[in-house]
Nucleic acid binder design. Structure first.
Ligand SMILES: [Mn+2]
Ligand SMILES: [Mn+2]
Length: 551
DNA sequence: CGAGCTGGGG
DNA sequence: TTCACACGATCTT
DNA sequence: GATCGTGTGTCTCCCCAGCTCGTT
């Protein structure tokens, strides 16, 4: 590997300032007063103070012990801390609660602080000590007193974290990327296709859309807390706010996914009414499937069947359709109606007796099939998806309006929506046509060479090397690949998974995709759908049912 | 004392 | 946050 | 036996220091 390049000493400050400038240019009219004020104050700080602030908000916190901060490039931190405090960007002398004390201190320090209240301290784990103290229900005052006696200095806390969060959201257009994306890019760890950034496009056109995104994030975090704390009332409260809330089209999917998760939790609490209500508000699979199952479990079979019929009019996705094909005959049978058993899926299969190996069953099976094939690769989804990404690379990064909003994207924003194919239909059709009519392997390998190492949501550079791409293309007919890619395009989100474990190859002669099933494992729904498709396209595949042979 | 985990860092 | 799997409970046998 | 629900591992780059925790 190439050595990583050196970064400028204060790279993190440059990155943050670039981010601030970009957001301000693009979104100035949507910023609230507090956010504008933050940017003003931040810019007035000395460079050292700005650096320290960026360091602190990039870390977990929320509180810090100043003597533990170690930033040699910033020199003594006292004046920077004072400056931050005087500009309102830092709180000093913050009182920590019990959990925060545990985060800030090592175990031996905790024993010093709480020595009188702890038993068997040396034998207990840190978590057990925390439980001991929590059981004693120290008042905040007690806690503060003990802390003050032990720690003579002031804890500090950077302020306006939520403003920084908002700036990140506006810059990236999501909540999972952060300043580290700059670093990874500068270091060359993550490199990106040279796509056209659509700075004229704004993901948010009104303040309310920003608020909605933030609210979604808060409710999601609230749900996570509620589940962790097994807090049934909080889940109930979430149900109320989620049911009523009306959503912008852009966020509808995410809201519905959260509704589904909350409703699922209500099911676990056996609160069928609330769950039904929330599922009814959701237009995202598996909301309707869950409603059918709830009705069925409550014995309301007619209602369940009615809902199934309604769903059949317009199924939301293949998975839902298959659910209906299984469930409708079942309900009819229970109701004593005429019914027709669903057509059973048939596919090539065989049983294998193998000695138990130490690695996964897939590798044992792969070794076995090396007896009849020249190569066997354990690739699951990675190979087909990589070929898909290589085939449609240029189309993936076409400058479609609103597709690229930050410099660190490995796919367009509409990748998972129905629109992805439609917006690029002419280009994609032309590309597939070209791949079909002229030598496909050369074009795909050229894409491999041209784009090697660039981040692409579909392409797995680590596991799929050039030889494998080349051999696979020699062995799999282009017609098969085109059929598979068309099916991926039909629903890129659902159809990017479920491929068989193994690809067996005789280079230039033939291939077979083999799904390995160990004892007790069954075919997943997405695996069954691909198997059915392989059958209809006469694509060679096999399911190998393994059990262990005693050695 | 050392294996293993976490958070911070480039 | 995804994907595949293991395992146990239950219902469809 | 099939199906369903739940929990788990692995993973988002790689290295290092500091820390935890269980073993000697
Ligand atoms: Mn697998
Ligand atoms: Mn398998």
């Amino acid at each position: 590997m190439d050595p990583l390049p050196q970064l400028d000493e204060r790279y993190y400050l440059r990155n943050f300032e670039l981010l601030c400038d970009t957001v301000q240019k693009q979104y100035e009219d949507l910023l609230a007063e507090a956010e504008v004020l933050f940017l003003q104050r931040f810019r007035q700080l000395s460079e050292t103070a700005r650096c320290l602030y960026v360091r602190l908000v990039s870390r977990v916190g929320p509180l810090f012990r100043p003597e533990k901060l170690n930033y040699p490039e910033l020199g003594k931190l006292d004046s920077a801390l004072s400056e931050l405090a005087s500009k309102g960007l830092l709180c000093r002398n913050v009182a920590p609660d019990l959990t925060e004390i545990f985060r800030l201190c090592r175990k031996d320090e905790l024993v010093e602080i709480f020595t009188a209240r702890l038993k068997n301290a040396s034998r207990c784990r840190k978590g057990e000590l925390l439980e001991q103290l929590q059981a004693q229900e120290l008042s905040p005052g007690d806690c503060e007193a003990l802390w003050g006696r032990w720690y003579p200095q002031e804890l500090v806390e950077p302020r306006c974290r939520e403003v920084v969060e908002l700036l990140l959201l506006l810059f990236y257009g999501n909540r999972h990327q952060s300043l580290t994306d700059f670093v990874l890019s500068d270091l060359g760890v993550a490199r990106f296709h040279d796509y056209v950034l659509d700075r004229g496009f704004r993901l948010f056109e009104q303040r309310t859309q920003i608020e909605e995104y933030l609210e979604l994030g808060e409710l999601r975090a609230g749900f996570s807390d509620a589940v962790d704390g097994d807090d049934r009332e909080q889940v109930q409260a979430l149900m109320e706010s989620l049911g009523e809330r009306d959503c912008s089209p852009a966020l509808q999917q995410r809201w519905d996914r959260l509704r589904n998760r909350v409703a699922r939790q209500l099911e676990r609490y056996q609160d069928w009414e609330s769950a039904q209500h929330l599922y009814r508000c959701s237009n995202q699979h598996p909301a309707r499937e869950r409603r059918v199952r709830i009705l069925q479990n409550q014995g309301q079979l007619e209602a369940a069947l009615d809902l199934c019929r309604e769903m059949q009019e317009q199924a939301w996705c293949e998975e839902e359709l298959e659910f209906l094909q299984r469930q409708i005959p079942l309900l009819q049978k229970k109701l004593g109606l005429d019914h027709q058993a669903p057509a059973r899926l048939s596919y090539p299969q065989e049983r294998l007796q193998l000695p138990r190996g130490e690695a996964g069953v897939e590798l044992d099976a792969a070794a076995h099939y090396l007896g009849s094939w020249q190569q066997v690769h354990f690739v699951e989804n990675s190979l087909i998806n990589t070929l898909f990404g290589l085939a449609l690379w240029e189309e993936m990064f076409l400058p479609v309006a609103g597709a690229f909003v930050n410099p660190f994207q490995s796919a367009p924003l509409d990748m998972h929506t129905q629109e992805f194919y439609h917006r690029r239909q002419a280009a994609i059709d032309a590309r597939l046509e070209r791949l079909a009519s002229t030598e496909m392997a050369g074009q795909i390998l050229a894409s491999y060479d041209r784009h090697l190492g660039l981040s692409n949501y579909w392409v797995n550079w680590r596991d799929i090397d050039r030889d494998l791409v080349s051999t696979a293309l020699k062995s799999i007919p282009g017609k098969h690949l085109l059929a598979i890619w068309r099916r991926i395009l039909f629903d890129p989100r659902a159809n990017r998974s479920g491929f068989p474990d193994l690809l067996a190859l005789d280079p230039g002669r033939g291939y077979c995709m083999i799904e390995v099933k160990g004892p007790g494992d069954q075919l997943q729904h997405n695996q069954k759908r691909w198997l059915r498709f392989f059958q209809s396209e006469q694509i060679p595949c096999l399911v190998a049912w393994v059990d262990w042979r005693d050695a």
